[in-house]
């Protein structure tokens, strides 16, 4: 089913994370950061909750992702275009669609690997009590969807510019707005120029809202559709964009 081009590119992209310090820095910061935030002695901390759940953990997942996921996606295309290897790639019998998907899934797998390495958290709560495994499982699925959505946003901005830093900043900003779309400050800002019905649509685009809803242990069709649309929209936009500007 999968074309050899997809497989070759997927494998190469995934391995490339471990060819540079990027992959290791990502893993260390992500795991340390999440671990620290989960157990830090402030409000909402794991210990203060006094329950065997990963609520404190999942609360910080979006905030780790917002800086780290764009760092993974920023090089996907920007680097390739800057070095000119994009010319090498697309003179092979590889379509833009296959290449975009292969890179996206490789990056997604990498973030998935990082997330799976937080397994000691699960062991911890299992030792401490009897957690609701369904909620923990759905929390991870939800985190993966969140990462997928952010990666597709980042992939788009990486395809837009040759400069990795610009791609990073644009991705972080866009992810932040999407994440906070249902919060009063962002809504107020949008409300200054947009009509009321648009505000309602905009509010429902919030990544945070959909992330939390699934993390409560309910699979809603609307959440699944939301992620599917989000990822396809940004990925499709990347394909269109790259078809236009790959040779510039």
């Amino acid at each position: 089913m999968l074309s050899p081009q997809f497989k070759a590119l997927y494998k190469k992209e995934f391995q490339s994370f471990f060819k540079t310090p990027l992959g290791y820095v990502f893993l260390v910061i992500f795991l340390f950061g999440l671990g620290y935030m989960t157990f830090e002695p402030g409000r909402g901390s794991f210990f203060l909750l006094r329950e065997a759940s990963l609520r404190a953990f999942f609360e910080y997942v979006p905030w780790m992702f917002i800086f780290l996921v764009p760092a993974v996606s920023m090089k996907l295309w920007a680097d390739e275009r800057k070095r000119g290897t994009v010319e090498l790639l697309f003179s092979m019998p590889v379509t833009v669609k296959v290449a975009v998907l292969a890179k996206f899934f490789a990056a997604w797998t990498f973030v998935g690997l990082a997330l799976s390495l937080t397994f000691p958290m699960i062991i911890t709560v299992l030792i401490l009590g009897r957690p609701d495994m369904k909620i923990i499982f759905l929390g991870h699925i939800s985190s993966m969807f969140l990462a997928g959505a952010m990666l597709s946003v980042g992939g788009f901005f990486s395809a837009m510019t040759k400069n990795q830093v610009v791609s990073f900043i644009l991705s972080v900003a866009t992810c932040f707005i999407l994440l906070m779309a249902d919060s009063p400050p962002v809504l107020e800002l949008v409300g200054t120029f947009a009509p009321k019905y648009f505000l309602n649509i905009f509010e429902s685009l919030s990544l945070q809202g959909h992330f939390e809803s699934m993390g409560k242990g309910v699979i809603r069709l609307s959440d699944l559709c939301y992620y599917a649309i989000m990822i396809s929209f940004w990925t499709f936009s990347s394909i269109v964009l790259l078809n236009e500007n790959k040779s510039e």
Partner: peptide
């Protein structure tokens, strides 16, 4: 095809 300046994936 050998493109101009022979771009390659440098980290491989």
């Amino acid at each position: 095809y050998v493109p101009e300046n022979a771009p390659l994936y440098d980290d491989m």
